[in-house]
Design a protein around this nucleic acid. Structure first.
Length: 505
RNA sequence: AGCGGUAUCGUCUAGUGGUUAGGACGGGAGAUUCUCAUUCUCCAAACAGGGGUUCAAUUCCCCUUACCGCCGCCA
């Protein structure tokens, strides 16, 4: 009985060890970047698919570049995208804290362990000395690697340097770790998306793991945190591949289980450079402000590297998760093209219900006085204007003629109004329409008759309507004319048409 | 410079040792419509180049080229 229990516990332990735990670890030195969002998405999808945990960790070891506003932005953006985390700074979890700056007292212990095991050593080189070495390497067109000058300092030498007031940094001894755990200088690992990756670690310089100010560097803090948080799979951008080799060695030096790694291709701007401000929005929050729907953003970004097995590209995040296989992700870079995102966004806008649209459009209608319209009129306005929208914000410029008394006439409309035909149409319109019953249903019928009336005179329906449209809306294209007239009402219509009619002496 | 990675229509991609190399966005043409848009139909558009291996290569191997990334006491 007891034996059975022990066995069960062991099995549970094994299961726990095998539990999928992934993380997204943004550094709060900016708003959540769309590329980071994609990495987060793939981590999230992988976790969901494998019944694992998705963890958020804030990497703020560099205090100078960190700000609370960025942290908030990261939280908000991730939430808006629907990438809810199971453990994180705000909600805690079994392996917290989840903010690196709050973990600073954890790291020294492991630095000491590495020091004790001989996998790390103190380095007293000054920034100036290092700079000189780098410069020399560059002049000789040699790749720069740290000289290991401080590797074998004696206690006396160290004491002397300390007495001079020098504060040491701690460097990781790559060759020692490599030798301890591998037969050659070649380090290999099997990447989840790229397959086997290898690297000659003798080409790597001993890197700093603890800065002279006592704070850990990224490469070290990441390993300690991933180890302590029992991260099973590290999915991140391929710009981290060279870090991965260093990090694997630290895991090994610490006697920790090495997680599995997967490296994603990068997202590039259309000019194949890094996606930056000059290409437009880069932060998720900027896209949202512009009127992109987070569902569309998620769907679009998932398609950068991943493709659905059934060929249907429009999918919810849950559907994508169910269909997600990390090894099927494309390992090449992909270009962020707005064309498809825009198409997808308009598609998602069309899938929104009218009540939902009415609410979501409101932030983009603040320059108008919505109280001019009844709820029924506003509903109708939305119904007849939402279809051509690419962005929610497009609504702003699509609806000015529903508001205010007069209307601004654009150039094309002006030209149209100036023609004799248009003037004739408008005069006739006033004459006929004054007796019309002003319901949309009736207007539809009357306008049809009105067009027929002119068609008999050889005037195309298009031309007839252009005159009315130009007078009432000030432009040549826009929503359904019948609906427009019904919404703005008879008085406004007449006022606008009348003011478009030239007064002849 | 060194090291690592990637290479299918313009873009995102599917796919296979023998296929008319498929889809989506974008582009073009047409239909519908009071306009713009929507919607629908149709069309054009790709295996980077050179060597191998093989009866057969877009697919496997090598080289070249191009592009991306990394070479911090940044993350």
């Amino acid at each position: 009985m007891i034996r059975l229990l022990v066995r069960n516990i062991k099995e549970i332990e094994v299961l726990k060890m095998n539990e999928v735990r992934v993380r997204i670890a943004p550094s709060p030195s900016g708003n959540l970047h769309i590329g980071t969002a994609r990495t987060a998405l793939f981590n999230y999808l992988f976790a969901k698919k494998n019944n694992g945990k998705f963890i958020l960790r804030i990497e703020d070891t560099d205090a100078e570049r960190t700000s609370q506003a960025y942290i908030d932005n990261i939280f908000d953006s991730l939430k808006a995208l629907g990438l809810n985390w199971d453990e994180g700074p705000d909600i805690g979890g079994p392996y917290g804290p989840y903010t690196q700056s709050e973990r600073f007292d954890i790291y020294p212990k492991y630095v000491q362990e590495l020091l004790d095991k001989g996998f790390a050593y103190e380095c007293f080189c000054t920034p100036e000395e290092l700079e000189a070495e780098k410069k020399e390497a560059a002049e000789n067109k040699k790749p720069y690697v740290y000289t290991k000058k401080c590797e074998n300092l004696t206690e006396e030498e160290k004491a002397k340097l300390r007495a001079e007031g020098r504060k040491p940094a701690v460097r990781f001894n790559i060759s020692k770790a490599q030798k301890a755990f591998h037969d050659s200088t070649i380090l290999k690992f099997n990447d989840l998306v790229k397959g086997e990756l290898h690297m000659d670690t003798s080409l790597l310089g001993d890197f700093v793991i603890l800065k002279s100010n006592g704070t850990p560097t990224y490469n070290f803090a990441v390993v300690i945190d991933d180890m302590l948080m029992k991260i099973s799979h590290v999915i991140r951008g391929e710009d981290h591949i060279s870090n991965t080799f260093k990090q694997i060695l630290i895991f090994e030096a610490l006697g920790a289980e090495v997680p599995r790694f997967g490296h994603l291709g990068m997202i590039l701007a259309p000019d194949r450079s890094k996606l930056s401000k000059r290409h437009g929005a880069t932060a998720v929050s900027e896209f949202v402000e512009k009127g992109y729907l987070t569902d569309a953003l998620v769907n679009f970004v998932a398609l950068l590297g991943w493709s659905p097995s059934d060929g249907k590209e429009i999918k919810t995040i849950d559907e994508i998760a169910a269909d997600f296989r990390i090894n099927e992700i494309s390992s090449s870079n992909s270009i962020f093209e707005y064309d498809k995102l825009n198409w997808m966004n308009s598609h998602y806008i069309k899938m929104l219900s009218i009540p939902e649209l009415k609410e979501r459009l409101k932030p983009y209608l603040t320059k108008y006085d919505l109280s001019e319209l009844t709820d029924a009129q506003y509903t109708r306005m939305v119904e007849v204007t939402y279809e051509p929208l690419t962005l929610l914000s497009d609504i702003t410029d699509a609806v000015p003629y529903f508001f205010g008394e007069g209307v601004e006439i654009d150039e094309k409309a002006r030209e149209t109004l100036d023609s004799d035909v248009s003037q004739d149409v408008l005069k006739t319109f006033i004459e006929q329409a004054k007796d019309w019953d002003w319901t949309e249903e009736n207007l539809h019928e009357k306008l049809e008759q009105f067009r027929a009336f002119y068609k008999e005179k050889g005037i195309k329906p298009k031309v007839t309507m252009w005159a009315v449209r130009a007078a009432v809306t000030g432009r040549l294209c826009g929503a359904d004319m019948t609906a427009i007239l019904a919404i703005i009402g008879k008085d406004k219509t007449f006022n606008r048409v009348n003011s478009a009619i030239k007064q002849t002496v």
